[in-house]
Simulated scan of single mutants.
Amino acid sequence: MESIIMDMIEAFKGLGYFGIMLALTFEFVPAELVLPLAGFWVYEGDMNLYLAIFAGSIGGVLGPLTLYALGRYGGRPIVLKFGKYFLVKEDHIDKADHFFEKHGGSVAFFGRFIPGVRTAISIPCGMTKMNIWKFIVYTYAAMFPVTSVYVYLGYKLGPQWEKAGAIFGQYANLLLIPIAIIIIWMIVKARKTKQRIS
């Protein structure tokens, strides 16, 4: 199965930055493979680092949007029936539902950093008809630092890009928590500024 996915990713390379976005639209194609490989393509001189990160971040929003739409327009029965095609199991949905009930719409951001929740969290966002633009902004804010780290690791590792996943897993919290705090601070500051203006 992994060799088939790798063949697909290599085929997407021919589409350039659009290919990165397209690959990440399919939830069954692991970002842990696509993004470091995109970094390797940067290492080889085939792509620009910043454009690869941007394309990866956009693709990281398009994939969750498909699950958001599934939840919004299909509801739980459709999700349970077709979720397996997006590698989403019923216990993932249950965890995501519970997390959503506890934390509200901000889970579109925070949920991306929690294993077992990060993929399925888009579904309750859709089922509760969360504002789609808020969902997109929160998801992009979460995906941008993750994407940046993965692509950069692939770039720095070069031919050993496959080690990026293990390195990311080992240092994820050290890398992402400070970034998440900065982003949260920026969101809170923007809200306060908006409230003062209005």
Rank of each mutant, 00 (worst) to 15 (best):
L49Y: 08
F26H: 06
L35Q: 01
G74N: 06
M21T: 15
V34P: 01
G45H: 05
K102Q: 15
R112Y: 05
I20A: 08
D46L: 14
H98T: 09
L65W: 03
Y85T: 11
R112F: 05
G75V: 09
D97L: 12
A38T: 04
A108I: 01
K81A: 14
R112G: 14
D94C: 00
L87D: 06
V42T: 04
G105C: 04
A69F: 11
T66W: 11
L51T: 02
R112H: 12
H92C: 10
F99L: 05
N48Q: 10
F54Y: 07
T66L: 15
F54L: 15
I58T: 08
F109Q: 00
G105M: 06
F40D: 02
A55I: 04
A55W: 02
Y68Q: 02
V79P: 01
K89T: 08
V42Q: 05
G56F: 06
L80N: 10
I78C: 08
G59M: 09
A108V: 01
G63H: 11
Y50P: 03
L51G: 03
L67G: 07
G104K: 08
G60H: 07
V107H: 05
E90S: 11
H103G: 07
Y50A: 15
F110Q: 08
I20K: 07
H103F: 15
P30E: 04
L24R: 08
L33M: 14
A55Y: 03
F82P: 13
I53P: 05
A69H: 04
E90M: 07
M47D: 02
L33S: 04
R72F: 08
L33K: 05
D91W: 07
T25L: 15
I93N: 00
A96V: 00
R72L: 13
L65I: 12
G63S: 15
M47N: 03
L49R: 06
H98I: 04
L37K: 02
F82R: 10
F99D: 04
V88E: 08
V34N: 01
V88M: 11
P36L: 02
Y43T: 11
G75W: 07
L62Q: 12
T25F: 15
L37G: 01
D97F: 12
A52R: 03
L49S: 06
A23I: 05
E90Y: 00
I58L: 15
H92I: 07
L35A: 01
A108N: 03
T66I: 14
V29G: 07
F28Q: 12
I20G: 05
K84I: 14
V79G: 01
V42E: 06
G111P: 02
I53A: 04
F26S: 12
F54N: 09
G56K: 09
V88C: 10
L62Y: 09
L80C: 03
